[in-house]
Design a binder for these strands. Structure first.
Lengths: 112, 112
DNA sequence: ACAAGTACGCACTTCGAAGTGAGTGCGCAC
DNA sequence: GTGCGCACTCACTTCGAAGTGCGTACTTGT
């Protein structure tokens, strides 16, 4: 189990942000939710290589951190939708420059 | 040993960037080099909690990735200085928004 | 004479995140 | 009636990043 966030335990905002997106698949999940809400199985197919256990765990953590919202339509068979909260949207925006940097300096993709 | 970077192996620039700064202490190291070049022992004291082994390993990886420059003044006792390359400076800039996001949304520090 | 600082390298251990494979209870298509 | 998809949970294993402790060859400080 992960300890809950300890305000003031970080030396800078970068520490804090990296703690939130620290999981192996977190950024990919957040990125996959950018366009529109997604269902669990949908995410499972989009985020290639992730196991169900880890996907579920990461989604729960992201929910605890206020990044994603989980909506359970109490239907049967189960139907659950995950979407970004405003905080999640702003996180995605903050990740933009870093993604662009990676494109240019690591992948060698021209910014045009 | 770490495999060298594989161009094209990333699904997006974010993957690539996170691979580069993936180490536990990488961002703190880069952040510590922002102001001016630093010596090994100096970094060791700044980056609290890091072991010498890991600091040396991370510095070597960051050098391989073109983020930091290592300058060895062949003196005795040894004197080595680490500084950011232009690419390192741009990385730091790209990390800015993420740090600000963490300050505001995780640490609750007002922007202003 | 002795400890401490310099910039590391090496062998060993630890520990937790992630991977694996199974089960659940229900509906629907074949 | 058999199997698949849904959205998970649980127990177990693996594996590699990070931690620990020691050694180096030399200089400076007390």
């Amino acid at each position: 189990m992960r300890e809950s966030r300890r305000p003031g335990a970080y030396s800078c905002g970068l520490d804090a942000a990296l703690d939130v997106i620290g999981g192996k698949w977190k950024v990919v999940i957040v990125w996959a939710l950018e366009e529109r809400p997604r269902r669990f199985g949908e995410l499972r197919r989009m985020v290639k290589g992730v196991s169900e256990k880890v996907l579920a765990a990461h989604l729960r953590e992201l929910e605890e951190d206020g990044i994603v919202r989980r909506e359970d339509f109490g239907e049967v068979p189960p139907r659950v939708e995950y979407s970004l909260t405003p905080m999640g949207v702003s996180l995605n925006a903050a990740l933009g420059p870093l993604g662009a940097w990676g494109d240019v300096h690591v992948r060698g993709v021209a910014p045009h």
